[in-house]
């Protein structure tokens, strides 16, 4: 039954988008973290989406194939009084691009909403199918 498979497809997309939102939150929260768990300044993280087959009707869901750290150059801030400043007085700040992250946030929340709509429509179609002949 194809309509049931839509729950799996949309569910996988919702899970992937919420993980993307999670990463955005982490990036925005750590926009000023000069030290992360490994002692280095925080690096911006990005999720990678890939298509994964779901069901036998040609349906395709989404999975997060990995979380990569951004290779963008780190921001250098001149602040000689900062405890993490180097001998020239520069502090290495995270390479989080706040504008990019805000765009990612809007994009993922809209995609999430779209998939919720898809799920609701499929649910109402299934309920109407159940009421055939009543």
């Amino acid at each position: 039954m194809s309509l049931f498979n839509i729950f799996n497809i949309s569910g996988s997309a919702m899970a992937a988008q919420s993980q993307r939102l999670n990463v955005v939150a982490s990036n925005l929260a750590n926009v000023d973290s000069t030290t992360s768990a490994n002692g280095q300044p925080y690096r911006s993280k990005q999720v990678m989406f890939s298509t994964t087959p779901m069901g036998d009707g040609g349906g395709a869901g989404v999975k997060v194939s990995g979380v990569v750290e951004s290779t963008a150059p780190m921001k250098m801030l001149y602040d000689p009084k900062h405890p993490m400043a180097d001998e020239k007085g520069y502090v290495t700040m995270p390479n989080v691009n706040v504008v990019e992250e805000m765009v990612n946030m809007i994009s993922s929340s809209r995609s999430y909403q779209n998939n919720v709509e898809v799920m609701n429509t499929s649910k109402s179609l299934l309920l109407k199918t159940l009421s055939i002949g009543q």
Binding site: L3, I6, F49, S111
Partner: peptide, 24 residues
């Protein structure tokens, strides 16, 4: 018709789910 419609619904749901997947 119903079988075909639900199969097509699944395909379109896949398209909507993969809106952010590169090369889909």
């Amino acid at each position: 018709v119903l079988n075909l419609r639900s199969a097509r619904q699944e395909l379109i749901a896949s398209n909507i789910a993969n809106v952010d997947t590169p090369n889909y």
